[in-house]
Design a protein around this nucleic acid. Sequence first.
DNA 1: GTCTATATGATGATAGAC
DNA 2: GTCTATCATCATATAGAC
Lengths: 202, 202
Amino acid sequence: MARSNTGKGGDTGERLIDSMRELLWERGYTATSPAAVQQRAGAGQGSMYHHFRNKAGLALAAERRMGEDLREEVEQRFAAAATTHQRIEAYLAPDAHVTRGCRLGRLIQDEEVAGSEELREPIVETYAWIQERIRQVLDEGVARGELRADVDTESLAVSILAIRQGAYALARLARSEEPFRQAGRGIAQLLALAAPEGAPGS
Amino acid sequence: MARSNTGKGGDTGERLIDSMRELLWERGYTATSPAAVQQRAGAGQGSMYHHFRNKAGLALAAERRMGEDLREEVEQRFAAAATTHQRIEAYLAPDAHVTRGCRLGRLIQDEEVAGSEELREPIVETYAWIQERIRQVLDEGVARGELRADVDTESLAVSILAIRQGAYALARLARSEEPFRQAGRGIAQLLALAAPEGAPGS
DNA sequence: GTCTATATGATGATAGAC
DNA sequence: GTCTATCATCATATAGAC
């Protein structure tokens, strides 16, 4: 909705959303001041409060957009891989700025976000979608004969989601992509064992 | 060292550390003000700055203690379980306040902590220890014939560590223990498949 | 729609009496 | 060792001119 209002993306409201999105990723919610967003967007104080009710209102718009982006990215990763095992590996592969954390997921660690129904909702919804999408991929894998039929795909989907989120934390802690890659390799080797008898996992 | 200075735990420095530890868990570092710590400890402003250089100095002392506690807890979980699979399940079992996040791990999400060498160090050290400890448990499992000999225990240890950290994030997001339990079940079923041929995993 | 004041409150730390 | 001022700074938001 927000993105379809105007043909061009250069108006102030859009620039504010983009700036907020960048800063939410770089610093989180609490550490991002309205002044910093305004400065990055090249807008004045009053301008921001004309377009949005307050800091939370602007952050909410930014979160919604981040949620859309995240879903698209997940979908692309799945689409670019052939087998189920490759799809899960693709999902768990690091992105460009892994040590900075997950754009959307990191926000739930912020006290103000976690305590706000409004700011929490887009995150909950997006991760529910991703979890369900992973489960679909796993179910497809079972149907294709790439995974054993007795796999509990629901809990496995949660594990895979948790690994990616945890891998972000470890990478941030280590200031390195390496733990992220290791976490992916660790689960990949187990997943290979979940191929039906005789069929090699990858 | 800090804990062995006095026979009783009632002096102001100790109470300040305890209060900081509690507040770091409940609110994180940035959201915890010196005033809040002082109030909980029943100490005045000047008293805190007599015992510690500043907020970071007090937080550092609290982090060190949290690191010790965490190691002890991990050790106890391993000690209370018999088989390798049970040990990993015990490690991944939820604790009392899972939706609040990992006492120590959640701090790395705080911008100020992540940006401070001083405040980051005890976290890095503690998680390096835990990761190595998990790897030892897995290696023991291989030696005992409970895990296949071709398992890459190093990357698997990282995956298991990542699952716990990620499970905290999902539980916090959902405000429920359920995702935490699901994440544990998901990996447990895969681990069962990593038993040597013929030997049941659990 | 955008700008420049300005208000209000909290934060992290210091000064200096006791 | 502990206390009560006090300070400089920043964060969020509002008022009102243009």
